[in-house]
Computed example of a mutant assay.
Amino acid sequence: MLLLIALAHAPLFLYVSEPGMISRPESVGILDILLNSIGEIFIDNRSRPLFAVLFGYGLVFMFDKQLSKGKSKIEARKVMKRRSFFLILFGFILAVFIGGQDILMAYGSAGLLVGWLLLRDNKTLMTATTIVTTVFILYIPFLWGFLLEDNGSYGFSSEFSRNDYYLQSFMEALVYFPYIPIFIHLLFPILPSVLIGIWFGRIHLLTNSHQQNKLKMIAIIGILISILGALPFVFVGELWGPSLFLAGVLYGIQVITGTVGGIGYAALFGVLGNRIKEPGWVTNSINALGRRSLTFFVFNEILLVILLSPVSLGLGGILNNTGVTFVAISIWILSVVTASILEKYKISGPLETLMRVLVYK
């Protein structure tokens, strides 16, 4: 999950590259075309819903843990609310003071929006999921069509420039940060993924070894739909030049099917996890990273800012798409190694520890 997010966010820092498709840089060679295509098919708008599914799954486990400690449902719900508020606070610090590409505010607000369903039965949960998902499916392709038409080109310019300096970026982020989660929720269907993650958590789908056949089916169907939904958009700008509105609609379809893809990825990882009976050092290291995912999401974003942002080392003005892909993979490997060292010495992730102090007092 953290690798996919790093790969999705790294190209956003390429501030001297010409815009390609939506937020991706223009391809300047065969390798760039390949990386952009792989990103559009397997990464873009797929890592975010994967994160959302796991977020919803985790809400159920934390809620049930509070009930097992003797708390009432109302008390447990208050704990979930506190955690959501602090996620928003962490996201605010990341977006405004650090300048990273934040998604924590979006998930914190998602927790506030759907957390009440933790108190309801499965029928209510599925009804809400159906209604919310239907609404997103109906409007997102057309919204992106109008956005791209209004933009006047296939791609959006980078939010960074060579002349950026920290105080300017800080003041702009301070003004615009309230709109970040609003725009994310409006343009991308996070809520359906969170709701499906809650349902997965209630039936313990990802960790129940007796549901392997169901997981396999979800993984195959979800990833296949994701690939098929992304393919038409991959050809835009390279082999095909449709109208801006149609290109936006195709991107909207890529976004929607990416939600299904994120669900498929979660199921695939559930299948793989249940198959590993004797984990080796690689698996244990990735597990260690997963147990510290909040810390290392922020850590990865900090390193991306330090290395690529124009207010720091500014490599985003020098490297191409291939270069920042290498940077993202290297940062993730460093995270895996660091997390495994922390695990060896029984040290929790600093942000996980802080979150527990804040939420559970």
Rank of each mutant, 00 (worst) to 15 (best):
D164A: 00
Y166C: 11
L167V: 15
Q168F: 14
Q168R: 14
S169N: 15
S169V: 15
F170T: 03
F170P: 02
M171V: 14
A173M: 11
A173C: 10
A173Q: 09
A173Y: 11
L174F: 13
F177C: 05
F177M: 05
P178M: 09
P178C: 07
Y179T: 13
Y179V: 12
Y179D: 12
P181R: 01
P181Q: 03
P181H: 03
I182N: 06
I182P: 04
F183R: 08
I184H: 09
I184Y: 05
I184S: 10
H185K: 09
H185M: 11
L186F: 15
F188R: 09
P189A: 00
I190F: 10
I190Y: 07
L191R: 06
P192Q: 03
S193I: 09
V194G: 07
V194T: 03
L195G: 08
L195E: 02
G197Y: 01
I198L: 13
W199Q: 10
W199T: 13
G201Y: 08
G201H: 03
R202I: 03
R202D: 00
H204P: 02
H204A: 10
H204V: 11
H204W: 01
H204Y: 05
L205W: 03
T207H: 03
N208H: 08
S209I: 12
S209D: 11
S209W: 08
Q212M: 12
N213I: 10
K214I: 15
K214E: 05
K216F: 09
K216S: 04
M217L: 13
M217T: 15
M217V: 14
M217Q: 13
I218S: 01
I218D: 02
A219Y: 01
I220W: 11
I220F: 14
L224I: 14
L224H: 06
L224E: 07
L224F: 14
I225K: 00
I225R: 06
S226M: 10
S226A: 10
S226F: 06
I227E: 02
I227Q: 04
L228Y: 04
L231V: 13
P232M: 03
P232T: 00
P232H: 00
F233L: 12
V234L: 07
F235L: 14
G237W: 10
E238P: 04
E238Y: 12
G241V: 04
G241S: 09
S243T: 09
S243G: 15
L244D: 00
L244C: 10
F245Y: 04
L246V: 12
A247R: 03
G248Q: 08
G248S: 12
G248L: 04
V249R: 05
V249I: 14
L250N: 01
L250S: 06
Y251C: 00
Y251E: 04
Y251P: 03
G252N: 01
G252E: 00
I253P: 00
I253Y: 03
Q254D: 05
Q254A: 07
